[in-house]
């Protein structure tokens, strides 16, 4: 369902050209559990951003669910992001002035779903993620693990086909990190494609397919 062909992404810093992605070819099937590892600057986050349509490649072709999404307009890409992709970040990125429930509700608001249905869906998700007691707390009143649970709940409330996690345990201690990983894997078991970018060898090893990157190229892929 994800098919990247000859994707190139070049950043310019002054007169220096940095090839963050240098002709990457990658196929990821629906329902896979993939980890992307590599040193800093290897291009793994850029790859994740391109897959999540946050970043546009300079060259190459990207097909998602059989449709070419490289040439979509900004608005169309936003819609694809909303419906098919969920992001989980290292630093959670919750809106500080909204409560946990309101943060989870955001994608439903963007989608234009009416308030009554929004409420019931948020309620259901709050139960699923054991956040019921924390529903009306702001992010600053939540622990790191709870914040990441809110972020994952938000990323998955519209039932995306792919969940993209960038260092999801980077800001968490070992135990809460393990809880978050368990949660992500549970979502994977329900059929969601899970792509995790990480430095953490232990986390990377848990995936079913392991991709290693260096200097903007895929140097290892045990799924091929």
């Amino acid at each position: 369902m994800i098919r990247l062909s000859a994707i190139t992404r070049v950043f310019r810093m002054g007169d220096q050209e940095i090839r963050a992605l240098n002709g990457v070819d990658l196929d990821i099937a629906s329902g896979e559990y993939v980890s992307i590892m590599g040193p800093s600057g290897s291009g793994k986050s850029t790859l994740l951003n391109v897959i999540g349509l946050l970043d546009r490649p300079d060259n190459g072709r990207y097909e998602l669910d059989g449709h070419d999404v490289t040439g979509l307009s900004e608005t169309e890409q936003a819609q694809v992001r909303r419906e098919k992709i969920g992001f989980v970040f290292q630093s959670f990125h919750l809106v500080p002035r909204l409560t946990a429930a309101e943060n989870i509700e955001l994608p439903l608001i963007l989608e234009g779903i009416d308030p009554a249905e929004r409420k019931s869906r948020v309620d259901a998700v709050l139960d699923d993620f054991e956040l019921r007691a924390r529903a009306n707390h702001r992010p600053s009143e939540l622990s790191g693990g709870q914040r990441q649970r809110v972020a994952i709940a938000r990323a998955t409330i519209l039932k995306p086909t792919a969940l993209l996690a960038d260092e999801p345990t980077g800001n968490l201690d070992h135990r809460t990190g393990a809880e978050v990983v368990a949660l992500l894997e549970a979502l994977h078991h329900t059929g969601t494609t899970l792509i995790v970018v990480t430095h953490d060898r232990e986390l990377g090893a848990r995936a079913h397919r392991h991709i290693a990157m260096r200097d903007g190229e895929i140097v290892e892929d045990d799924g091929q």
Partner: peptide
């Protein structure tokens, strides 16, 4: 973040 979760620029 709003963009990442699918808000178009217009929103």
């Amino acid at each position: 973040l709003l963009k990442a979760i699918g808000a178009p620029s217009a929103d």
